[in-house]
Simulated assay, not measured.
Amino acid sequence: MANEGRIGRRHDVDFLRVCAFGLLIVYHSSILYSSRGWLHQAGGESWFFDLISIGSHPWRMSLLFFLSGVVTAALTSRRSPGEVRLFRSRQLLPPLLIGMLVIIPPQIYITLKMQSGFSMPYLQFWWSYVTGGFIDASGREVGSFAHLWFLAYLWVYTALWALLHRYAPALFLRGGAWLSKTLHGVGLLYWPVLYLAVLRLALFPAFGETLNPVTDWYAHIVYFSFFLAGALLAGQEDFWDAVVAHRKMALTIALACFVVLAAIVTTIPAAERPALLVTALRVCRSVFQWTAIVALLGYARRFIRHSNPVVMYLNRAVLTYYVLHQTVLVLVAYWLQQHGMQPPWAFGVVVVVTCAVCAIAYELQRRLLSVASFLGREQPQLGVT
Rank of each mutant, 00 (worst) to 15 (best):
residue 136 D to E: 04
residue 111 T to N: 09
residue 163 L to F: 13
residue 234 A to R: 04
residue 329 L to V: 02
residue 56 S to T: 13
residue 119 S to N: 11
residue 308 N to G: 02
residue 191 W to L: 05
residue 113 K to G: 09
residue 108 I to H: 13
residue 3 N to V: 09
residue 97 L to V: 12
residue 184 H to R: 13
residue 250 A to R: 01
residue 63 L to D: 01
residue 106 P to R: 00
residue 331 L to I: 07
residue 160 L to Q: 07
residue 8 G to C: 02
residue 369 L to C: 10
residue 270 A to L: 14
residue 161 W to H: 11
residue 182 T to F: 06
residue 171 L to P: 05
residue 212 N to P: 08
residue 221 I to W: 12
residue 272 E to N: 15
residue 132 G to H: 00
residue 41 Q to N: 14
residue 168 A to T: 09
residue 352 V to F: 09
residue 72 T to S: 08
residue 334 Y to S: 10
residue 205 P to E: 05
residue 185 G to H: 04
residue 124 Q to D: 15
residue 301 R to C: 06
residue 259 V to L: 15
residue 204 F to L: 12
residue 45 E to F: 11
residue 127 W to T: 10
residue 290 W to R: 05
residue 330 V to E: 00
residue 45 E to A: 07
residue 242 A to I: 02
residue 138 S to P: 07
residue 277 L to S: 15
residue 321 Y to W: 07
residue 85 R to N: 13
residue 199 L to I: 02
residue 367 R to I: 12
residue 24 L to R: 03
residue 185 G to Q: 03
residue 98 I to E: 04
residue 201 L to Q: 06
residue 299 Y to G: 09
residue 302 R to N: 11
residue 249 M to I: 11
residue 175 G to Q: 03
residue 39 L to F: 07
residue 40 H to P: 07
residue 65 F to R: 05
residue 348 G to Q: 07
residue 84 V to A: 01
residue 193 V to N: 05
residue 306 H to M: 07
residue 59 W to P: 00
residue 14 D to R: 01
residue 134 F to V: 02
residue 168 A to E: 10
residue 314 L to G: 02
